[in-house]
Nucleic acid binder design. Structure first.
Length: 286
DNA sequence: AAAACCTCCTGAAAGC
DNA sequence: TGCTTTCAGGAGGTTT
């Protein structure tokens, strides 16, 4: 389940192993992997060939590779199970290999997009004046972006008529936070996932943002969170932050602060993990 | 118009 | 034993 830290690990790998290389050929093995690309699989392959890959960039959970001397970028989203792997050309194809990108150099490696559940994909889009692929213009800056505006976030959060976890998962308000890091940051903040956004004071918002940043930086330092082989870096290696999780996936296990058994609640077609003692349910609205 | 809901997909694991 | 059901969930599109 790649969220901001996992995507950033992948971005760094692309920067190290792919940026600066010139695309030779592209093989799309599953059309769904390029469904966001309106010109189709053939158009996607043709548009990339011959272009040098620029500096790998990221906003929230989106990654993109600008093409030098071109107003276009290759946009990537890993979805639930997408992987961008730099593999030796002679390595056997992965079972869920969707796209192969080969380069015009003698390095002997190629870039592969592998995705079991096919929620992710690659596509080519024109950049906006600020260098962002046009289709992600609605994605908010993420909390590790130096230009993220804490005061504006607080104002926007207060204006919402919803609950805090829904707001954290809304990528147009704050990007990069998914189910795992939302639960972790809420646990660290001792906040219940259904606290109404309208009840947030400036200090409470500041504390929550601080915990979001802390948990993401901690995860980044550990190479991300891997529960299984579905999330790995470009070299196929797992992260080990899963062993540091305090909330996510810990149903029935003791809260690391107070020892109370953690709970899981079905919520929005997914799960929320929380401590019923540290994270008290908000008073129901009158 | 903003908020909530629906749906896409595969495979592991649980249920019967 | 083996088939069926459940679960994981990001985010665009649709509905309310």
């Amino acid at each position: 389940m790649p969220e901001l830290p996992e995507v950033e690990v992948v971005r760094r790998g692309l920067e190290r192993w792919v940026s600066g290389r010139v695309v030779q050929t592209v093989e799309v093995r599953h059309p769904r992997a390029v469904r966001r690309h309106l010109a189709g699989p053939e158009g996607f392959a043709k548009a990339l060939a011959g272009h040098r890959v620029g500096e790998a960039r990221r906003r929230g959970k989106y990654l993109w590779l600008p093409l030098d001397d071109s107003p276009f970028s290759v946009l990537a989203h890993l979805g639930m199970s997408g992987q961008l792997l730099v593999q030796p050309q002679d390595a056997p194809d992965e079972k869920h290999l969707r796209i192969r990108i080969c380069f015009e150099d003698g390095l002997g490696t190629e870039l592969r997009f592998v995705d079991q559940r096919t929620f992710g994909g690659l596509s080519l889009h024109e950049n906006t004046p600020d260098g962002l692929p046009d289709v992600i213009a609605h994605i908010a800056r993420d909390p590790l972006d130096t230009l993220f505006d804490d005061a504006a976030f607080h104002t926007a959060l207060r204006a919402r008529r919803t609950t805090i976890k829904r707001a954290l998962l809304d990528q147009s308000l704050i990007s990069g936070v998914g189910n795992i890091y939302a639960d972790e940051a809420l646990w660290r903040s001792r906040l219940h996932y259904e606290r109404p956004t309208g009840t947030f004071t400036r200090p409470r918002t500041a504390e929550l943002l601080g915990h979001i940043r802390d948990v993401m930086n901690d995860a980044l330092a550990a190479g991300g969170t891997s529960f299984d082989s579905l999330y790995v870096n470009v070299n196929g290696e797992s992260g080990y932050f899963d062993r540091s999780l305090d909330a996510y996936g810990r149903e029935g296990e003791p809260c690391r602060r107070c020892g109370t058994p953690m709970r899981r609640r079905a919520w929005m077609n997914r799960s929320s993990y929380f401590c019923p003692r540290c994270q008290r349910a908000p008073r129901l609205p009158a």
